[in-house]
Simulated scan of single mutants.
Amino acid sequence: MDEGTRNRIRGAVLGQAIGDALGAPTEGMTRAGIREQFDRVVDFLSDDPAGTDDTEYAALTAQILLKYGTAVTPADVAREWTAALVDQETPFDGGGFSEMDAIHNLAKGLLPPASGSDNHELWSDGSAMRVAPIGAFAAGDPAEAARLAGIDAQVSHALDGIWCGQAVAAATAAAVTASSWQEVANAGLNATPEDSWSRRMIEKALAVAAGPGTEDERLDELERRVAIFHYPWADVAPEATALAFGVFAIAEGDYVEAVLGGVNIGRDADTIAAMAGAMAGALNGIDAIPTKWTKRLGPLRGSCIAAMAGVDLWRLADSIADSVDARKVLTDV
């Protein structure tokens, strides 16, 4: 594998985690509230930044893929979730509703797709938040990324919850080899079903991004037209995923501006910035991420998933790159 592709895979994995950590303090806020309190967030707000459940579930997803490869099945995902999560004795700090519902369903003996559909979180962004490693694993193959994301998502999601995960995975996979941000956005959009809620919301966000006004004005319009303020939670997958595609497009794929767009748009800011960070990191590579940010994130703490404590994201990204390289060698033989 050439170093450029390896650096894009690193960009996808680290880009997701850094977006997550940057966005954690503004989660649940509005743009107006962020402006009032911080003016504009341009760096970590914590002296000791760390990724949330988004990054720990992404690491679990990566480990499952590395273990089972492209032959992974929903039953494999359920088996690994059960082993890592069902008997966890410590609290799931920051764990999302969809994941907790899935864990309880697995504990009751339900398996995918029932474990991901016998709950009220069919539309949450818990799948989309964790698929950056899937996009990296399927580098350059959006269709394969969408297929794998669909397998992964069934343990905890259904319908739009799955489709949004497929959109982010496909976009990230495309970004590893893409030459333009438009290719990335189109790959994600094309991974969603025609006339689905997910697709309509992403189309709306991309239309706002392509509209008139300054970057700040378009971010304001993006929040106004996409955010679902009448719903009490900000983790609706079609909303958060659309906002991620919107900030990515407004930034024209630039890593720093895409991630900060997600941080400063509020709502489910950690997940929005994580998704935008995965796409932009994969498009531009690890060198586009400021060193002052990459140096701040150490091994995962296991705050939500105890089994993920100590995972090194750099090594995880390189393991994914090695797997991609090995599959390519087998294909070329």
Rank of each mutant, 00 (worst) to 15 (best):
Q37C: 13
E223S: 08
A153D: 06
F44S: 07
M308D: 10
I18T: 09
V77L: 10
I289G: 03
A175L: 07
A205D: 14
R315T: 10
A24E: 04
V256M: 12
E194Q: 11
D87C: 04
R296I: 01
L330G: 02
S179L: 08
T291K: 09
I18Q: 10
R130G: 09
T90K: 15
Q37P: 13
T61I: 09
M201R: 06
R200L: 04
P49E: 09
R199V: 00
A132M: 06
V311M: 07
Q88V: 02
E223A: 12
T5F: 09
A171W: 03
A128R: 12
E56L: 10
V263Q: 09
L222Y: 11
D312K: 08
E3A: 09
D118K: 04
F44M: 11
T241Y: 09
N119T: 02
L297E: 12
V176M: 12
E56M: 11
T90E: 15
R79V: 05
R296S: 11
E257D: 14
D287N: 02
V155Y: 07
D270F: 06
I162E: 02
G298A: 04
L243A: 10
I286K: 10
A207Y: 10
S323D: 13
E252N: 02
G261N: 04
Q182A: 14
A274D: 00
R199T: 01
A50D: 05
A114G: 00
R225K: 10
A280W: 01
G51S: 07
M275C: 07
R218G: 04
V41C: 07
P232T: 08
A24P: 01
I151R: 05
V311N: 09
I64S: 10
Y231W: 15
N186C: 00
G33Q: 15
P25S: 05
N264T: 06
G298I: 03
R6W: 03
E99K: 00
I103F: 01
I320Y: 07
V131L: 06
V41Q: 06
T82C: 04
H157D: 03
V86E: 02
R147C: 11
S115N: 06
G15S: 15
A209N: 13
P193W: 02
I305D: 04
T73D: 05
P142N: 12
L60R: 02
T90S: 15
T214D: 13
L65M: 12
L313F: 15
